[in-house]
Design a binder for these strands. Structure first.
Ligand SMILES: [Mn+2]
Ligand SMILES: [Mn+2]
Ligand SMILES: [Mn+2]
Ligand SMILES: [Mn+2]
Lengths: 151, 151
DNA sequence: GAGGATTTGTAGCCTAGGCAAACTTTGACG
DNA sequence: CGTCAAAGTTTGCCTAGGCTACAAATCCTC
């Protein structure tokens, strides 16, 4: 029995650790969920409820797109929603949302500490937040701490 | 005549500047091209030619996927390729490849200067390289310069 | 409490980017 | 040369995530 039949078999679990491109594709598969959940939590905190129309406006997509995405999140057990009613996070959804928000905040603070203008930092943070390993986030944290809030 | 008919019309040109999520979707539309072109240039430099089988191995996808992607790049005028022969970059393709490689290198150096371990930095760089504005890249450059190659 | 604007949902379409399976071409080598 | 394994392509399939157009429900407002 051969030790490697790599030609046709693709590792599923730790290929992400050895191939950066595979890792990026995996990141992207989680990206939408994270953005939706973070945004839903935000809307609930700030306006009392998360409505399809507001999510669509924030994300810059059509409402039909949001409806479809919500159906998927429901399937995955991350949100609950009754037809024509607003959207709520499950406990699992809340966990992901909080983690996403934290990452987002860390990265934003980091970029600003690095000297990037606020509005540019906001934009870049939204993209890179899904691609950073714990180690890199930790390094960013250290950097923020070292910078004593420059004037 | 109303000043805004925003309800049905979506800005195309500068919406990217005002909505981070739209900007991220645009980034992702360019991501594959950039990665392919950078990789093709790399293979040519290091092995003399860019072959489907090697591109597939590097990206962690099947050869059929690469063939399809190359067809798209050809359509876009970024590569040339005859059937069953290896792949070459057009001038336009070379420009994009070089810019991508430069960004990649800057980000990698930056992460390492920040204290991230080499292999983790390699992985994270591959994801975030497509999401950074010129301003942020410039800030990273400055940071690298300030750090006098820590031991 | 009826009407109508707003919001939500459904149906159908499209493209990008994956895959497997089968076929074709190439080229190394006996 | 002829063979045949390796490389490349084609075909057909799938899912995610966009969109429009239209239908249905909700909920202001009078
Ligand atoms: Mn994001
Ligand atoms: Mn990305
Ligand atoms: Mn990349
Ligand atoms: Mn790269």
């Amino acid at each position: 029995m051969p030790l490697q039949e790599k030609d046709t078999y693709q590792e599923k679990d730790d290929s992400s650790r050895i191939n950066p491109f595979v890792r990026v594709r995996e990141d992207h598969a989680n990206e939408l969920s994270e953005d939706y959940l973070e945004l839903i939590e935000d809307l609930i905190d700030r306006t009392g409820e998360a409505r399809t129309v507001d999510i669509a406006a924030k994300l810059g997509v059509r409402q039909a797109t949001v409806t479809k995405a919500i159906a998927r999140l429901k399937r995955e057990g991350l949100v609950t929603a009754a037809p024509y009613r607003s959207i709520f996070l499950t406990n699992e959804g809340k966990k992901i949302a909080s983690r996403a928000r934290e990452h987002h905040r860390t990265i934003l603070e980091f970029l600003i500490a690095l000297g990037v203008q606020q509005d540019v930092a906001e934009i870049d943070a939204e993209g890179i937040e899904h691609h950073l390993s714990p180690a890199t986030l930790a390094a960013m944290q250290r950097f923020i701490q070292q910078q004593p809030a420059a004037a």
